[in-house]
């Protein structure tokens, strides 16, 4: 048992995290508890609920430009599930998105090691729950996800215009993050976006 509940971690950046339960897995009690604590730790949580495929989760994570994905898996097949998620993020150029997970006793110690070695950020175990407490686990998860998003794009849109117009999801997502998190630094770039809208026959510019 943990000795006292630690205080919630205070994020330095705006953090966004996707939460879900794995594919063909209806066990949503644990992820619901976790996501509530993540929310109350000051994180914006995009919750997908149960039975979500890797592709759905990765698409969502990229479109939403999150720092991390937190998944529970109680239905087996976790090795394949987490590794595939890691691979798909890498393939989509989004390996900066961290993966966290949990699956109670269904994930064996040797499997846990295998997943950590593969690059999964951390799989929490029932023992972690006992030693760290729920808030302690979430603090660890949130602290490891505490990095800025949208920063690298703050200078200008040069070079990304093409990929924006090709509807590259990552580009769109990062520009939105830039305007959300670094409005001053990205002012110039946002002006270019507006000019782009103004020159398009389809839409009216807003702001």
């Amino acid at each position: 048992m943990s000795t006292g509940t630690p205080a919630p971690y205070k994020p330095k950046n705006h953090i966004r995290i996707v939460t879900a339960a794995s594919l063909f897995d209806g066990h949503d009690a644990a992820i619901n508890i976790m996501r509530r604590i993540i929310q109350s730790t000051g994180v914006e949580v995009i919750h997908l609920g149960h039975d979500r495929s890797v592709q759905e989760i990765v698409n969502c994570a990229i479109q939403e430009d999150v720092q991390a994905i937190a998944i529970t898996s109680y239905q087996g097949g976790h090795l394949e599930f987490f590794k595939y998620m890691y691979d798909l993020l890498e393939e989509r150029g989004a390996s900066n998105i961290k993966i966290f997970g949990g699956g109670g006793g269904t994930i064996l110690p040797n499997e846990l090691r295998e997943l950590h070695e593969y690059g999964i950020c951390r799989i929490y175990t029932p023992d972690d729950g006992r030693s760290m407490g729920l808030q302690g686990m979430i603090n660890d998860l949130v602290a490891q996800s505490d990095r800025p998003t949208g920063k690298m794009l703050t200078n200008s849109l040069n070079g990304t215009i093409e990929s924006l117009q090709n509807k590259d999801q990552q580009t769109i997502a990062r520009i939105i993050s830039a305007s959300e998190n670094f409005p001053d630094e990205s002012a110039e770039m946002l002006q270019q976006v507006k000019d782009l809208v103004k020159s398009s026959p389809r839409h009216r510019c807003w702001a």
Binding site: H14, E44, I46, C60, Q63, E64, D65, L164, Q165, K167, Q169, I172, A173, I175, I176, S179, E180, P183, L190, V193, K194, L196, V197, S200, R202, H203, C205, W206, A207
Partner: peptide, 30 residues
């Protein structure tokens, strides 16, 4: 393409960056 935004400190449905976000997807010519 879908993006979920929180109102953040402003607590208004429409803060500046919501408008910006709309412009971004408009610029992407959806």
């Amino acid at each position: 393409y879908m993006r979920s935004l929180a109102t953040r400190q402003s607590n208004l449905a429409l803060s500046k960056y919501v408008k910006d976000a709309v412009d971004v997807v408009k610029a992407a010519q959806f």
